[in-house]
Lab assay of single mutants.
Amino acid sequence: LKKVVALYDYMPMNANDLQLRKGDEYFILEESNLPWWRARDKNGQEGYIPSNYVTEAE
């Protein structure tokens, strides 16, 4: 899975979204639905995130 790091905080707009915290790492599960990607956080929560809020992890 592709790993990304959040560049900004993101508060979910609806139940399908995943909250982002700046500096945290996330795994990308699906990239087909631009600009929204399906992601999983370190706690196993899954949801959609804005792809322009993250960058690929080193």
Rank of each mutant, 00 (worst) to 15 (best):
P12Q: 04
L34K: 13
G47Q: 00
P12V: 04
Y48V: 06
A57K: 11
D17N: 10
P50L: 10
K42S: 11
G23T: 03
Q19S: 08
R38T: 10
D24P: 01
W36R: 15
K3C: 09
T55K: 13
G47L: 02
G23V: 01
A57E: 08
P50V: 03
W36T: 11
R38I: 09
A6K: 00
S32H: 08
N52T: 12
S51A: 14
N33L: 11
L20F: 02
N52G: 12
Y10P: 00
L18E: 00
L1W: 13
Y48T: 07
A15T: 13
P50S: 05
W36I: 14
N43G: 08
R21E: 06
D9H: 05
Q45F: 12
E30C: 11
G23I: 00
N16Q: 12
M13G: 09
E25Q: 10
S32R: 07
A39H: 00
Y26N: 00
L34R: 10
R38H: 09
A57C: 13
L29M: 07
E46L: 04
E56K: 11
G44I: 01
L29W: 05
N16S: 12
A6V: 02
L7Q: 05
P12G: 06
Q19C: 10
L7R: 06
K42G: 09
R40C: 11
G44L: 04
R38V: 10
R40N: 03
S32D: 09
P12C: 05
L18Q: 00
G47E: 00
V4K: 03
F27T: 11
G47C: 02
E58T: 14
N33G: 10
I28C: 03
I28E: 00
N33S: 13
D17R: 08
I49E: 00
L34A: 14
N52I: 09
L34M: 11
Y53S: 06
G47D: 00
K3E: 03
W37F: 09
D24G: 07
I49H: 01
N33E: 15
P35A: 15
V4W: 07
D41A: 09
Y8R: 13
N52A: 14
N43V: 07
N16W: 14
Y53K: 05
N16F: 12
D9S: 05
A39W: 02
W37Q: 06
Y8F: 13
V54D: 00
R21S: 08
R21L: 10
M13A: 11
F27L: 13
S32P: 08
P50T: 03
L20Q: 00
Q19L: 10
R38E: 05
L20E: 00
Y53W: 06
N16L: 11
Y48P: 03
D24Q: 12
E56T: 11
E46P: 02
L1I: 11
P12Y: 02
P35N: 15
L18N: 00
Y10S: 03
V5H: 05
I49K: 00
L34C: 14
D9I: 02
N16C: 15
I49F: 06
Y26C: 02
S51E: 04
P12H: 03
G44R: 04
R38D: 03
L1Q: 08
Y48A: 05
K22D: 02
A39C: 07
P35D: 15
Y53F: 11
P50I: 05
E46Q: 06
E58L: 14
P50H: 08
R40W: 06
L29H: 03
G23N: 05
M13W: 07
T55H: 08
N43Y: 14
S32V: 08
K22T: 07
K2G: 04
G44Y: 04
Y48N: 09
S51L: 06
N16R: 12
P50N: 12
I49Q: 00
N14Y: 12
N52H: 14
K22F: 05
N52Y: 11
Y10Q: 02
P50D: 06
A6F: 01
A39P: 00
L29C: 05
N14R: 13
E30Q: 10
I28L: 09
W37N: 03
K3R: 13
G47P: 00
E58I: 14
S51R: 12
N16K: 09
L20R: 00
I49S: 00
R21K: 13
V5A: 03
R40Q: 08
L29I: 13
Y10K: 04
K2Q: 05
L29Q: 03
L7F: 04
Y26Q: 00
L34E: 15
E46H: 04
Y26R: 00
S32Q: 07
K42A: 11
Y10M: 04
W37C: 07
L29N: 02
N33A: 11
D41V: 01
Q45G: 09
A6D: 00
L34Y: 15
G44Q: 05
P12D: 02
I28N: 00
Q45I: 11
D9T: 04
E31P: 07
V4D: 00
L29S: 03
F27C: 08
D41I: 01
E25K: 07
Y10F: 09
E58D: 14
M13D: 09
E31W: 12
A15R: 10
N33W: 07
M11I: 14
E30P: 03
N14L: 08
P12R: 04
K22C: 08
L7K: 07
R21I: 15
N33Y: 10
M13T: 13
V5Y: 10
N52K: 11
I49N: 01
E46F: 04
D17I: 08
N16I: 08
E30S: 09
D41M: 02
V54E: 01
A6Q: 00
A57F: 12
D41W: 01
E31A: 12
Q19T: 09
N43I: 07
S51H: 11
E25T: 14
K42Y: 07
E30F: 08
N16A: 11
R21G: 03
V5C: 06
G44H: 05
Y48Q: 07
Y26K: 00
Y26H: 00
R40L: 11
P12W: 02
A6L: 01
Y8W: 12
M13F: 09
N14S: 12
D41T: 04
W36P: 07
E25V: 15
L7A: 04
E31C: 13
L7I: 09
V5T: 10
L1E: 06
V4Y: 08
L29P: 02
V4S: 02
F27R: 04
S51N: 06
